[in-house]
């Protein structure tokens, strides 16, 4: 197992200077993970718990793991999964996925005790401002997997959490029993079989004044609509945004953790992924600055105003 190696501090390392890598995420590990539990929580949707202590230590909500399938002959790529929950004390994590192809089907055939090869923690996490009291989470369908861990983190830190969930119908609605009791859970379905009839974005109006920060994961049209709401929020509501002093101070570089903490909306993006460490440039999204940003490295979490929502190529 290749993980970190002890280094002689007197020796120069083979890495780039610290200044260059200062923004790079904490060390990535390649570790074996043992499947503890596998459940089909909804039709075609699975929740799996793995034990991977080395990998879970230091992992934060919004990050992800890249997992190798055992079918090496046909499936040459790993599969990325967001941390659905993280338990650093027990050294366990859960992933939540829908069976969409041969790779995800392979995972459903695993039995407790089986081991898989995980690379992680990858990407940059959600950034919560220390002054934030009220957190609004918005999940569309399987986007629940992206924001679920943040609910735990926020409640642990004593924040109030409202989770808005949008799905196609009752059979897609994430079970409330799998959420912490402290979370206010509001559901919208396309067919009205549970909760509000319509899009989850319709629900945002009731909460956007209450919320200090919002975090979203889901289909691109949902995220685009939310980004539009976030951009016009200040004008529509006249609310103050957090901690922005007029004038003074150095400008905060776009994409930095600090800039993201000050954004009202952070989104977790999805793209087809190759290496998941930033080497292959397969999973980019276009930024408003006109430079492609790697979902696996600069993301998957971005401030909503970092992203060029209409493309840009």
């Amino acid at each position: 197992m290749t993980t970190t190696r002890a280094r002689d501090p007197s020796q120069p390392t083979a890495r780039a200077p610290a200044s260059r890598l200062a923004r790079e995420p904490a060390s990535i590990r390649l570790a074996g993970a043992e499947l503890l539990d596998s459940r089909e929580i909804l039709p075609g949707q699975w929740l799996q718990a793995y034990r991977a202590p080395g990998l879970v230590a230091g992992a934060r909500a919004g990050q992800f793991v890249h997992v190798r399938t055992g079918d090496y002959s046909g499936l040459v790529l790993r599969r990325p999964f967001s941390f659905n929950t993280i338990d650093p004390v027990a050294g366990t994590l859960t992933i939540h996925f829908r069976t969409v192809g041969r790779g995800t089907e392979w995972f459903t055939r695993l039995r407790p005790g089986d081991r898989v090869d995980m690379l992680g923690p990858l990407g940059r996490p959600f950034e919560v401002d220390p002054r934030t009291r009220h957190i609004l989470l918005i999940a569309g369908g399987l986007g629940m997997a992206g924001v679920r861990a943040l609910a735990d983190e926020a409640i642990r830190d004593g924040r109030q959490v409202t989770l808005l969930f949008g799905g196609a119908g009752a059979r897609d609605v994430y079970p409330s029993s799998l959420l912490p009791d402290e979370v206010e859970y509001v559901v919208a379905t396309d067919d009205g079989s549970v909760g509000h009839r319509g899009f989850v974005t319709d629900l945002v109006a009731d909460y956007e004044a209450w919320a200090d920060q919002a975090f979203a994961c889901g289909p691109l049209p949902m995220l685009r609509a939310l980004a539009g709401l976030a951009a016009s929020r200040r004008r529509r509501l006249g609310v103050a945004s957090l901690g922005r002093k007029r004038g003074g101070g150095r400008p905060i570089p776009a994409g930095s953790a600090q800039a993201r903490r000050r954004a009202f909306l952070q989104v977790s993006m999805e793209q087809n992924m190759g290496c998941a460490v930033g080497a292959c440039l397969g999973c980019v999204v276009m930024s408003t600055a006109g430079t492609p940003q790697r979902v696996c490295r600069e993301g998957p979490v971005f401030a909503s105003d970092e992203i060029a929502w209409e493309g840009g190529w």
Binding site: V76, Q271, N272, G274, L281, C283, V284, M286
Partner: peptide, 23 residues
């Protein structure tokens, strides 16, 4: 170079297709 629009990679039987476009 900013490269090609996404999606840029996809898995195929026994391999993968990429069109990064020399970003």
């Amino acid at each position: 170079r900013v490269g090609n629009p996404t999606p840029r990679v996809t898995e195929t039987p026994g391999g993968m297709l990429n069109s990064i476009g020399l970003q």
